[in-house]
Amino acid sequence: MKPKVAFFDFASCEGCQLAVLNCEDAFLDILNLVDIVEFREAMSETAPRFDVAFIEGSIHREIDVQRLQGIRARSSVLVAMGACACIGNVQARSNFIAPAENFKRVYGEADRNLVQSDPEFWPLWAHTRVRAVKEIVSVDYELRGCPIVPEEFVHLVKALVVGSIPSFPANAVCVECKMAENECVFDQGETCMGQVTYGGCKAICVTHGYRCDGCRGFLPQANRVAHQAVLREKGLSDAQIEHRYRLFCSAQFVGRENRR
């Protein structure tokens, strides 16, 4: 029997599911190997159990926590798919701003006060902190990036199909920059998050003339003290450095110390 695969989305742009659909040829081959039983971008159906559940999006509300726990209980393998699910992504920046302040910014002060006083809107207030999937349930594999890298998705599916262990080496983006023979972003007078960020993206942003902003998250061995020192030497202020660090990774190190 073909493995049952499901895709679930939480707080996200669903761009990673689109990236999956964009695997095109490989996606058609995958359809021959697995049964996709839930996929909002492509179909709607529900199943009681899943062999593999792909989770897209960060977790915000209590209701999302319960839904996620339910999916985990029904899934043999759970994959966090994309930067939102793995490290919170840009929306986790709101973790550093009081919810009342956020509502004011988005809806204006008057509507914020209305929202605050009307019980109908109270579930919104349950949103207190943006969390990555692994903060709530155990995650078997992570497909990093904003959006995910189609080749990594295909690699993961292949491994799951043959029963091997997919390999996502914890190497810096620099490795792939050198393989692509990119001129280092620092030599272009810019600054970069590449040295402390998970590679696997083929250094796509640098290869196309931009810098790495760290969407794949900090490496376990990330020497963040040294990295901040390098950025400071290149003229970045502490506030600018904090901005860079919080852009994608606000939810990555909640409650954890800066480690080497």
Partner: peptide, 10 residues
């Protein structure tokens, strides 16, 4: 003990 040996075992 690894990716390959897991498959070899089957």
């Amino acid at each position: 003990a690894g990716s390959l040996t897991q498959v070899l075992h089957r």
